[in-house]
C-alpha cells in the first residue's frame, strides 16, 4: 500500500462499542456516527461476540482497534494473530484499523498491557518496518496510537512525539492520536502536552481518541473511566484546529454508564469539534501555531483516588462467565 497520508474518511464523532450497550444499540438503533470495536474480543470462531458484531456492522460504520499486536516486542510478530485479524478485517471491512505504540510481552509471555517502548533509533526502525509490513499484509490503512505511560526509560534518546512522528513517517502509516494519553503522559513525565500536540504530523492523524482518566495525585492512571476533563478538551480543540476534520472516538471502559450518558458526551465532543473546525476555517496556519503555543498547558496535580482494580481496554469481554443466559 502506498504512502498513507490522510486517506481515510472523516466519520465524525463516534463511541467505543462496549458489551453493556449492545442490547440498547440493537433494540433502539440510536443515531451514532460510528463505533469502534476491540479486535481481540472478536477473534473467535463464533457465538455471541461475532453475532453482535455482525448485527452492528450492518447498521453502522465500524472501525477495529487492537490491543495485542505487540508491535514493539523483541519476539517476532505473531502470525496466527495477524491471520485471524485479517479474517476479521475481511468480515467487518473497516475503513482503517489501529493498534498501539507499545510492547505486550517477550519470550512467549503476553501480559495484555500496553507497555511503553524505549524511544530509541533501534526501536523506531523495528516498529516502522513492522508497521509498514502489517499495513501491506492487512490491505487496509493502518494507524498506531500513542499510549499513556507511567514509567520512563533512562536510555531514551528522543521525545515521545519525535519517536511517534518518525515511525509514522518512515512506515507511511497513520497516527491514531489519543489526546487523553498525551495529557496523562505529560502529567506523569512532566512535559508540556501542547509540545506533543504541535509536533506530530497532523496530516497523518487518521483518528483521535478521547477518554477520561483517574488522577491519583502522584500520577494519573489511564482508566478510561468518566468523561474527558476540561484540559483534555482544550488539547482536543487545538488538535482539531491543527489537523482538520478527523474522526474522533470516545472510549469509556471503566464503570461504564448507560448508553445515553456516553452518547451525551459524544454530542459534547462533537460540538467542540464543530467549533474548532469553524475557527480553523477562519485562521491561517501561522495563527494556528501561535494559538497552540499560547494555550500551552501544564496539567494541575489534583488528588483524586480510586480503588485499585485492573482495567482492560474495551471494558468487559463478552464471556462465558458473564453469559446473560440465565440457564448456565
Amino acid at each position: 500500500m502506498e504512502n498513507t497520508k490522510r486517506i481515510v474518511p472523516d466519520l465524525g464523532v463516534g463511541m467505543g462499542l462496549r458489551v453493556p450497550h449492545y442490547a440498547h444499540i440493537l433494540e433502539h438503533n440510536p443515531e451514532m456516527a460510528f463505533f469502534e470495536a476491540i479486535s481481540e474480543n472478536f477473534l473467535v470462531d463464533g457465538g455471541k461476540p461475532l453475532y453482535h458484531l455482525d448485527r452492528i456492522s450492518e447498521k453502522y460504520p465500524l472501525i477495529l482497534h487492537g490491543v495485542s499486536l505487540n508491535i514493539g516486542g523483541a519476539d517476532e510478530l505473531n502470525e496466527d494473530y495477524l491471520k485471524r485479524l485479517k479474517e476479521l478485517v475481511r468480515r467487518v471491512k473497516p475503513a482503517w484499523i489501529s493498534d498501539h505504540f507499545c510492547w505486550c510481552g517477550v519470550g512467549g509471555a503476553h501480559l495484555h498491557d500496553l507497555l511503553p517502548l524505549p524511544f530509541t533509533e533501534e526501536v523506531v526502525s523495528l516498529v516502522a518496518e513492522r508497521a509498514h509490513r502489517i499495513q501491506d499484509y492487512l490491505e487496509v490503512p493502518f494507524a498506531l496510537e500513542n499510549t499513556s505511560s507511567y514509567l520512563d526509560y533512562r536510555h531514551n534518546t528522543m521525545t515521545e512525539w519525535q519517536f511517534v512522528s518518525e515511525v509514522v513517517e518512515r512506515a507511511q502509516v497513520g497516527l491514531m492520536f489519543d489526546v487523553n494519553n498525551v495529557y496523562v503522559s505529560a502529567y506523569n513525565h512532566g512535559f508540556d502536552a501542547f509540545d506533543f500536540v504541535r509536533s506530530v504530523p497532523h496530516e497523518r492523524i487518521f483518528q483521535i481518541h478521547m477518554a477520561g482518566h483517574t488522577n491519583r495525585g502522584t500520577h494519573i492512571i489511564d482508566t478510561h473511566g468518566g468523561a474527558p476533563i476540561d484540559p483534555v478538551l482544550d488539547l482536543y480543540r487545538t488538535t482539531v484546529e491543527l489537523s482538520g476534520a478527523v474522526s474522533t472516538l470516545l472510549e469509556w471502559d471503566d464503570e461504564i454508564p448507560g448508553y445515553d450518558t456516553v452518547a451525551s458526551e459524544v454530542v459534547r465532543i462533537s460540538q467542540i469539534r464543530d467549533d474548532a473546525l469553524r475557527r480553523r476555517a477562519g485562521k491561517s496556519e501561522s495563527q494556528r501555531m501561535a494559538t497552540a503555543k499560547a494555550l500551552s498547558l501544564i496539567p494541575e496535580r489534583a488528588g483524586v483516588t480510586l480503588d485499585g482494580h485492573g482495567w482492560v481496554q474495551g471494558g468487559p469481554r463478552e464471556s462465558a462467565g458473564a453469559d446473560h443466559g440465565v440457564s448456565a
Binding site: 514509567l151 506523569n188 485499585g308 485492573g310
Partner: peptide
C-alpha cells in the same frame, strides 16, 4: 513507576 504496571498485571489477570 514499575510497580504500577506490576499491580495492574495481577489485577487484570485475576479479574479475567
Amino acid at each position: 513507576t514499575l510497580e504500577i504496571y506490576r499491580e495492574q498485571y495481577w489485577l487484570r489477570h485475576t479479574g479475567a
